[in-house]
Design a protein around this nucleic acid. Structure first.
Lengths: 112, 112
DNA sequence: CAGTATCCGTCTCGATACTG
DNA sequence: CAGTATCGAGACGGATACTG
């Protein structure tokens, strides 16, 4: 279970899954959608997700080449738990940052 | 938000939060409950969760020393999303391992 | 367009040993 | 009991260059 959670907890994996939530995307579309990801990391993340059966890869032999990525049913089943976690993070990021500031300022963490 | 997800999605953090879901636990109780965690990783994970205001740390000065960890209200609000993620991982670990085996056996991508 | 290959610094993890 | 200190292997991630 640990390695499964590691995949899910990876920041790039989460962003790729979220980017594919709306439907299939091509490589460079993903690259544009996911700000800050390098080509290398996008490739590696997609391979990892593909290996785990969460993402499908469809190659169209043409010039220029075309590769479409999409969530598999398994990948889709991950959307809900990931979205809930994401929503929690968005809702509570303020509290967490406050707690961090307090903790870092002094050992006084009796609040929160 | 990435750093929040990093903390929350971290495999050890998830397991610690799940272990504390039933109530407060002492250091070595957690160590026993969470199979495979090293002392160092448990300490680091607890510090991280404490810093983020998700876990409280109560020291009882005695011999031997006693330290109780528990979820804060904020930590408790995390229980549900984390449990969903954990349940997803437990429910789908079989499918993922099958997918991995297929992927690794099939096309030889040497490495990732 | 969609990758691979390579280099390289940084960070993480786990094992081990020691302590109040 | 509940940590801290230290160390080395390896994973991670960015930058860059090249290719079918």
């Amino acid at each position: 279970m640990n390695d499964v959670l590691a995949r899910v907890g990876d920041k790039w994996s989460v962003r790729v899954v979220m980017a594919l939530a709306g439907g299939s995307r091509r490589f460079n579309e993903l690259r544009r959608d996911i700000a800050g990801i390098s080509q290398r990391m996008l490739t590696r993340t997609l391979r990892g997700l593909e290996r785990d059966g969460l993402v499908s890869r469809a190659v169209t032999a043409s010039v220029p080449p075309r590769v479409d990525y999409a969530l598999t049913p398994l990948g889709n089943s991950l959307r809900d738990p990931v979205a809930r976690l994401g929503n929690w993070a968005i809702a509570n990021i303020g509290k967490i940052e406050t707690a961090r500031a307090l903790f870092d300022a002094g050992s006084d963490h009796t609040k929160l």
